[in-house]
């Protein structure tokens, strides 16, 4: 699992492996700490690295949706494919969060790269 921020303080959570009741609480805690410490305006939860998910994954997304609403932030659910999408569709989450596809990890990393270069330039000056 990876949590990234881009230069617009958007947060990307890249989930990986299996999401069940056993490991959902650890994932939940890490995401909630990131949200609380950075107050991002948009949070993307990316499922492209997830190999299995049961309804614990839905609970995870629903819970984050509720928290983000209190922060006035938006939730995006990214790259839900195959069986993950099938489970997610049962939840009606598509009415609450936007479902998007794309290579967000690359997008976020690139945006930080640019910022780091700029900062370095500024420091040199």
């Amino acid at each position: 699992m990876k949590i990234l921020f881009d230069n617009k303080n958007r947060c990307l959570v890249c989930l990986s492996g299996e999401i069940d009741h056993h490991n959902a609480s650890a994932i939940r805690m890490k995401i909630d700490v990131a949200i609380d410490s950075h107050c991002p305006g948009e949070v993307y939860i990316d499922f492209s690295g997830v190999s299995f998910m049961d309804s614990s994954g839905i609970g995870l997304v629903m819970g984050r949706y509720r928290i983000l609403r209190e922060y006035g932030a938006s939730l995006f659910v990214a790259n839900c494919k195959g069986s993950i999408r099938k489970v997610m569709q049962l939840s009606g989450m598509n009415r609450l969060a936007k479902f998007v596809d794309g290579d967000f990890e690359n997008e976020f990393l690139n945006s930080r790269k640019g910022e780091t270069v700029n900062e370095q330039v500024a420091n040199v000056k």
Partner: peptide, 23 residues
Amino acid sequence: EPLFTSAPDEDRAGLGFTVMESF
């Protein structure tokens, strides 16, 4: 019933039986 849970504080979605029934 879909979305019914006795443990809402733990982020349980209340969809366990719904998943079993659908799958």
